[in-house]
Simulated assay, not measured.
Amino acid sequence: MRDTEARESLAPAEPSSHLVRSVTRALSALPSGADVSEGSRVTSWQRSDRAVLDESIARLAATWPLMLSELRIGVAQVALLEGPAIDGFTDFTTHGAIYVNRSRLRTSPRGLPGPVRCAEALVHEGTHTRCNAAQLSAPFLTPAADSAHPLRTPLRADPRPVAGLFQQMVVLTRSSALYALLLGGDTSAADVLDARRALLVKRARQAIGTLRDRTSLLTGHGLTVLEECAALLRTIAV
């Protein structure tokens, strides 16, 4: 792929009307009781933000090129958010755009480097994009899942639909794989990376366990994906 082709995807997106409308919808969908007083808004990329994004993409190219290839196919725009209400999200009405809070480009209080956190955000939100597209041609869930009671999930305090839990399972498994691959490289933050990997693996297993108790809500394709996630976790969990 030529450099000019690569730049057409995963491109930092400046604020525009379709992105602003998407954030407004996301804010309105937050659970009752959520603190949205400071909100979140689409903001402009600064030079330092772009440098972190570039380094994150370089790390993915070095450690997980297949994942980067998928992201380059599915993600055209990366919108940057400012404000604590929303950490990140995808919106099917703006398919091809992902939304990442600027805080995910900064070093965490526990010392997780900004470019690593950004790489995780790209994998996380990009995986939602992949799932949204994939389920159109081969659904993961049966029609009965639409009327099932919302479930407690690893990543959200409020109960979520079965579809939300299913996507969390895939996201958490892939994010776990990212850290396993990063740990296989030369890093000066191995303890912090391993702690993050262990937490993601634990959460992924929780999601898998909940879905195993509700396999009647999964299609054959959904069951296959569940078992693929479980198998991948077995190879990266210690």
Results as ranks from 00 to 15, higher is better:
residue 78 V to K: 04
residue 66 L to N: 14
residue 139 P to F: 08
residue 87 D to P: 02
residue 124 H to Y: 11
residue 105 L to V: 06
residue 104 R to K: 14
residue 119 A to R: 05
residue 69 S to N: 13
residue 60 L to F: 09
residue 117 R to M: 08
residue 119 A to E: 03
residue 86 I to S: 08
residue 109 P to N: 02
residue 57 I to F: 02
residue 111 G to D: 11
residue 64 W to E: 12
residue 102 R to Y: 09
residue 148 A to G: 10
residue 136 L to R: 14
residue 45 W to K: 06
residue 162 V to R: 05
residue 96 G to N: 07
residue 93 T to G: 13
residue 87 D to T: 13
residue 127 T to N: 06
residue 43 T to F: 00
residue 111 G to N: 09
residue 115 P to T: 02
residue 139 P to D: 02
residue 67 M to T: 13
residue 132 N to R: 12
residue 73 I to P: 00
residue 80 L to W: 09
residue 77 Q to T: 01
residue 95 H to A: 14
residue 48 S to M: 11
residue 132 N to I: 04
residue 125 E to C: 02
residue 104 R to I: 00
residue 73 I to G: 09
residue 141 L to A: 03
residue 92 F to T: 12
residue 133 A to V: 13
residue 45 W to I: 04
residue 130 R to Y: 03
residue 79 A to D: 08
residue 128 H to C: 07
residue 77 Q to F: 06
residue 116 V to S: 03
residue 148 A to I: 11
residue 76 A to H: 15
residue 127 T to Q: 13
residue 47 R to L: 07
residue 127 T to L: 09
residue 51 A to L: 03
residue 51 A to D: 12
residue 103 S to H: 06
residue 130 R to N: 02
residue 64 W to C: 07
residue 49 D to W: 02
residue 105 L to Q: 07
residue 110 R to H: 15
residue 134 A to N: 05
residue 100 V to D: 07
residue 55 E to Q: 12
residue 101 N to K: 08
residue 85 A to G: 11
residue 97 A to W: 00
residue 132 N to K: 08
residue 128 H to W: 07
residue 72 R to I: 04
residue 87 D to M: 03
residue 101 N to S: 14
residue 160 R to F: 05
residue 127 T to K: 10
residue 59 R to M: 15
residue 66 L to H: 12
residue 99 Y to H: 08
residue 107 T to Y: 08
residue 144 A to N: 14
residue 122 L to P: 09
residue 153 T to A: 14
residue 139 P to S: 02
residue 60 L to G: 07
residue 153 T to M: 06
residue 142 T to Y: 04
residue 50 R to A: 13
residue 75 V to G: 08
residue 125 E to S: 06
residue 59 R to S: 10
residue 59 R to L: 15
residue 51 A to G: 00
residue 65 P to N: 09
residue 146 D to N: 14
residue 162 V to M: 04
residue 102 R to W: 09
residue 104 R to T: 12
residue 96 G to M: 01
residue 84 P to I: 04
residue 69 S to Q: 15
residue 85 A to C: 01
